[in-house]
Simulated assay, not measured.
Amino acid sequence: MGFAEKVMNDLGGAMASVLAALGVRLGLFGALAGGPATAKELAGRAELAERYVREWLWGLHSAGYLEFDPGSERFTLPPERAAVLADERSPLCLAPAYGLVPPLAGMLDEVAEAFRTGQGIPHEEYPDGLYRAMERMSASWLDTMLVEQWLPAVPGLTEALERGGKAADVGSGSGRAVLAMAQRFPGSEFTGYDLHKPNVDRAAAAAADAGLNGRVRFEATDATTGLAGPLDLVTMFDVLHDAPDPPALLAAAHRALEPSGGVLLVLESNAAADAQDNRGAPGTILYATSTLYCVPSALADGGPALGTLGLPFAELAELAGRAGFASTEEIPLRSPMNALYLLRP
Rank of each mutant, 00 (worst) to 15 (best):
E318W: 08
Y193G: 01
G214S: 01
Y65K: 08
T225H: 15
G23C: 03
G12F: 01
A210D: 02
W58P: 09
L94N: 11
V7W: 04
S90A: 02
D274K: 15
T235V: 10
L146A: 08
P304G: 14
Q183P: 04
A182L: 03
M137S: 10
L19I: 08
D87H: 15
L257A: 03
V7E: 04
A33P: 04
P91W: 00
R255H: 15
C93T: 02
V239N: 12
P244M: 08
A281I: 07
P155Q: 08
I121D: 08
L42W: 05
R51T: 08
A207Q: 05
E124G: 15
R25K: 05
L60I: 03
L316I: 03
D169A: 13
A223C: 12
A298Y: 04
N213V: 04
V200L: 07
T117N: 13
G120W: 07
L250A: 05
Y341W: 07
S269P: 14
G214F: 00
G30E: 01
E159G: 04
S174F: 03
G280M: 00
Y193H: 01
A4S: 13
D143Q: 12
E135G: 10
M1I: 06
L57P: 12
R132L: 04
E268G: 10
A182Y: 02
K166E: 14
A46H: 02
L286V: 11
E55P: 13
M107T: 03
C93Q: 02
T235L: 14
A49R: 12
F185T: 00
T308S: 15
E330S: 13
A252S: 13
L309M: 05
C93K: 06
G13M: 06
T158F: 09
A271S: 11
P244Q: 09
P186V: 00
D128I: 07
N338E: 03
L343R: 02
A205M: 11
R184D: 01
D232P: 08
A133H: 02
A139M: 06
S140N: 12
L212M: 01
V295L: 04
P102F: 09
S260P: 09
